[in-house]
């Protein structure tokens, strides 16, 4: 008695995924010897591991993730950061500076103020306390320019693509610097506003069509078309 659902089948919570000697992966759960889906998405399996690629869902922090967050609260020795997840993250002053923070001599607001956007890395998260962040690595810290857009967190893997194929394509073609936060926030900074707008347009397409095949090719065509329009406008001027 063994059953395994076909790959890339649309499933809803409670749908049977597999029966027999299988493990429940992400967005799936096991009851007895049967595995069921717990979210809407597309079924998939690797070996004995059966899981669902979710079409919707919130961001659950994991250690090592790079995220974009907003400082929402300040406490003695730490900031609370909204990282678009069910749990607010915490950033200690020790993780924001290379030197010890002296609360007598300096203000915390001089480092980060409420409303500041930061690019940070999740140090650890075990669901018992809020996730802890750090900005002590190169490239991390306060965001000072660029545009930020939101995407469904579960669609971020698609934006990156297989081995970064999609994101590399975007950076190469648009010349924009794209920083992807695993929590669904994306920072775009380009040479000029037109290119930034184009990138945002493309990201919206990816969001809409995330779970369709042949997306990279379609995006390539789209960029070519849009770019020729941009160039035409420029030559007119």
């Amino acid at each position: 008695m063994s059953y395994l659902i076909e790959k890339r089948t649309f499933v809803i919570p409670g749908d049977l995924l597999a029966e027999g000697d299988y493990h429940a992966g992400s967005n799936a759960f096991k009851e007895g010897s049967t595995v069921y889906a717990s979210m809407v998405g597309l079924s998939n399996s690797v070996g004995r591991n059966v899981y669902v690629v979710a079409l919707k869902g919130c961001y659950v922090p994991r250690g090592g993730d790079v995220v974009i967050g907003k400082v929402v609260e300040m406490r003695l020795g730490s900031w609370n950061v909204d990282i678009n997840s069910p749990y607010n993250a915490i950033l200690f002053t020790s993780e924001a500076l290379d030197r010890p923070f002296n609360s007598r001599r300096e203000e915390m607001t001089s480092i980060l103020d409420i409303g500041d956007l930061i690019l940070a890395k999740v140090i650890s998260f075990d669901r018992t306390r809020g996730p802890a962040l750090t900005i002590r690595e190169s490239g991390l810290g306060k965001i000072v320019h660029g545009s930020i857009i939101r995407m469904t967190p579960s669609k971020i893997p698609r934006l990156i693509g297989r081995k970064g194929s999609m994101i590399n394509l975007l950076t190469r073609e648009t010349g924009c610097h794209i920083t992807v936060g695993q929590n669904g926030l994306i920072l775009i900074s380009g040479k000029n506003p037109e290119l930034e707008a184009l990138t945002i347009k493309i990201l919206n397409i990816i969001e809409e069509k995330a779970h369709t095949s042949g997306l990279t090719n379609r995006i390539t065509d789209f960029i070519k078309k849009e770019k020729s329009v941009l160039n035409a406008e420029k030559s007119k001027e």
């Binding site: 809803i12 919570p13 409670g14 717990s38 979210m39 809407v40």
Partner: peptide, 11 residues
């Protein structure tokens, strides 16, 4: 609830 992406055992 399904549309919100909340993990559920069943509808």
């Amino acid at each position: 609830l399904v549309d919100a992406g909340i993990p559920m055992k069943d509808l």
